[in-house]
Design a protein around this nucleic acid. Structure first.
Lengths: 202, 202, 202, 202
DNA sequence: CATGAATGAGTATTCATTCAT
DNA sequence: TATGAATGAATACTCATTCAT
């Protein structure tokens, strides 16, 4: 961790922050490298000292986001011994720091929507894997709950879990896209939590 | 309805079909007008006889899709006098003909994700309005059910409805994006339906 | 001169009139064949029954104009036995029907200005030839006047004639381009005539 | 005047020189930006670093030319106290550096001839204004000469001046278009000068 | 003869990327 | 290391011309 490395990393973060901001404002295809350079207050050439191509920017952005999330999910497993509580905590987690995600949502959309771009960035794969790990978390917790008798046994863990994942993504996405009032959204989350709890508890 | 009008309309449909196919395969930005022309087996120039610009293609595609949906929602209101049944039918409707929608999902993503593009196509507006009409449908049915005593009265119709809309969109989207096995998805829908019914029924 | 030929000729004239009108309004390069067809109230395809290419239109227009002028110049030679009078009549001729020419002036400019276009239309050649025949007319008259003793003998006929041709073209062109008041322009012509007469008369 | 500014201005001149050369050879509409880039020995993209659009090239070319002329006209007023001499000097000025103008004449023609192009370049306006300032110069000198008794008093200054302007433009234009022998043209100018002098002197 | 739908060659402009300084 | 001037591949759209009806 020489000072040079720190500098490099700091500069990479500056660039990413600028990129996120500009991508959020104009979208990936409408953003020029020059825009990002200007936002980051450096020359166009400098960007290429830190990122080989334009595509590497969203690639890196997504990588960091997913990494963050995975770490937090792992924590829940450790801190919530009760499966039902863990599930509800997992739901909460999906809606945490959503305002931060909101900036990146359009970028995710645009990249996922463009297969050619997606192929070279590999977001789909990462995204699926991310959802899959969330799914696995729920499956595991449900099955644990069932074997402990807290969760109704005639519930298909894989099916319910996957439905829950889609639901959470849908709700989070709508929040990010349509900028609900925080209270309104909190109420929705509350209703969902309530519904899920009463549906799965035996 | 002279033969010429029939021809024109048929040709527009041909072009739209080709456009949908190519957009689905490569994404909007990666699709060249030449690609669409080739797919539609006609010259580039011909495309411009039927659509003024490239942007007019997704615009038209979205317009037709949304129109279809609105008509079907109206039918449900008429054919399902029972509110709970109407709600469940509405849920079913969201998952009907999903394979057709699947082709267009990436296009929707890409356009929604790119603010600049979205502004000139106006998809966001249409899309929000579409979700809003679905939301209204659920709100209306829930309130009707509450006044008839079939639905628990301590449920906030606007909050539950909006959560349900996000949920349905999330599930439909995941189906379109990740190409679930039909049976697997049907099972998810079944669980959702079951959960919703037992949650709202008094 | 069967009726068919008359019809053909009439239709050609219709097209040329439309072409002149549209060329005058928008210029050659900005005029689409479709514009001319619309102005002439016929189909685009019909134009091609009467003129092989777009370039043939200005070619024909110029041809007719020059032909007209040549005929009129010949008349002067026959009707004005007095050389000085003939010269002044030649000057007058250049300013006759100028309003009709005014429509075509921009077209002439645009074609003369574009060497590539000019090459294939051959306007430069025609135009030079036209000016040359006017020049010859003046040369001939001046020399006749000199041998008859009416025109000062120490005047170089070729030099004065060519200067006069440029002058006439300059004045006619400015009238066409800048749309002088007729009286203002008539006064200019009068001054020129007066100056020329007093300069050449012995 | 940092070195960068010097470079930029030099490069602009290089491009303009190339543009003038190619426009002269093929005409505005027939000239591709690639042609100019090749002539200037740089990439197409570089042109756009210095000029936003193709139209900006003739716009700039005309601007520089007109500016030059205005400056020179002002000098004459100061250096020629005698009105008749000033007028003759003005005439001479119009024929100075004509070979340089010759390259641009076709471009002027093409732009003036195409209303659509002219509108966005604004050449007509500049050109009229230029002629008007020349006209004003002559009007002023004639009237000064008349009040000093050197110029015949029964001469309408505005009418004669405007006629003279058209004449000068006509002669200059024909020289540029038809590439007269310099001696032949000088003789024409000499005759014109002689004629004007003897016509206006009292 | 008349038509206008179909065509595709042709072009201004953009922008990711490079590299000399 | 930082820069931004230079580059040219890439692409939507136009329009003269053709030809089936």
């Amino acid at each position: 961790m020489s000072p040079k490395i720190v500098d490099r990393e700091a500069k990479r973060q500056e660039i990413l922050a600028a990129a996120i901001a500009v991508f959020a404002e104009k979208g990936y295809h409408s953003t020029k490298m020059a825009d990002i350079a200007q936002k980051a207050e450096m020359g166009k050439g400098t960007l290429y000292e830190y990122f080989r191509t334009k595509e590497e920017l969203p690639k890196t952005i997504f990588g960091l986001m997913i990494q963050d999330f995975d770490q937090q999910i792992s924590k829940i497993e450790q801190t919530h011994p009760d499966p039902v509580e863990a599930i509800l905590a997992g739901i909460q987690l999906c809606f945490q720091d959503l305002d931060e995600f909101a900036h990146v949502t359009p970028l995710v959309f645009e990249v996922l929507g463009n297969k050619e771009l997606d192929r070279s960035i590999g977001l789909s794969e990462d995204f699926e894997q991310w959802l899959e790990s969330l799914n696995q978390f729920f499956v595991t917790q449900i099955q644990a709950g069932q074997s402990q008798g807290q969760i109704v046994s005639d519930l298909s863990a894989p099916i319910f879990a996957r439905m829950l994942v889609s639901t959470l993504d849908g709700m989070a996405t709508h929040y990010c896209l349509f900028h609900f009032q925080p209270e309104f959204f909190a109420a929705q989350v509350s209703v969902l939590t309530d519904m899920v709890r009463s549906y799965i508890r035996s």
